[in-house]
Design a protein around this nucleic acid. Sequence first.
DNA 1: CTAAAACCTGACGTTGACGTCAGAGGCAAG
DNA 2: CTTGCCTCTGACGTCAACGTCAGGTTTTAG
Lengths: 135, 135
Amino acid sequence: MRIGELAARSGVSVRALRYYEEQGLLEAGRSGSGQRHYPEAAADRVQLIQMLYSAGLSSRTIAELLPCVDAKVSTPESRARLAAERDRIDAQIAALTRTRDQLDTVIAFAGSPASGCAWIADGDVAAQVSHSAAP
Amino acid sequence: MRIGELAARSGVSVRALRYYEEQGLLEAGRSGSGQRHYPEAAADRVQLIQMLYSAGLSSRTIAELLPCVDAKVSTPESRARLAAERDRIDAQIAALTRTRDQLDTVIAFAGSPASGCAWIADGDVAAQVSHSAAP
DNA sequence: CTAAAACCTGACGTTGACGTCAGAGGCAAG
DNA sequence: CTTGCCTCTGACGTCAACGTCAGGTTTTAG
């Protein structure tokens, strides 16, 4: 499969695929004249990459995780790395849940007939805000 | 409270606070000589702003939401806006949960004594990837 | 065979949320 | 009064994940 088809299948741009290769996230065979050629499984891999991107991981972090995902190299460090990112995502989920609940509260007040919305919750609300930055 | 103290209390940089004001997210009184002066409640507001930022909302979106949060103006449009962002966050949480579960699967395989990790799940995995971009 | 479509490399442009630096003023302490 | 810290505006720098354009080669359809 060439790059255009992979782009169409995985729903990302051709430019993005070339960028992924540049970042070492996605390798491609080259056919004689220099055109990239991908196996079928590449589509799934691109999906995974997108998944990790949308989880806030940087390309560098993804590049560090992917080998220990598919290359079966399971050193203690790699497992720690995976676990760390997992925990980071967990924290992010928790933060998002808090934010969503906040919005729900606001919506409830805004929707009430009294329409009295006296600021959020005046107190310990908005306690921890996870600054999502992958190391 | 002046800008330095607010920065210290809320854990963001002075530059960020000025940026928030520039974007219309945070208003400040000025004391004669032009120095910004904030009320106590500003710290909570900054926390809320950070919360929304870390949820992936853009400053423009936040600027559109905040008035309908604290100014009690509850038009149908504003409520729809709030609900839309809430749903977006919900989708984001779902996507993150899927990603976390993926990582858990990988970790489980990596941690197993057999250490046989034959790619993720070969199938319908990585179904929907929510591209988190706030309109 | 030829024109259109797809692909290549290389390089510059974009956007958002700030960082950082420069130069000039303000403010409490000693 | 001056020293040292805080603050101001303004403007340029940064970084990631691409978009976009230029100019050239390759593949495919007719």
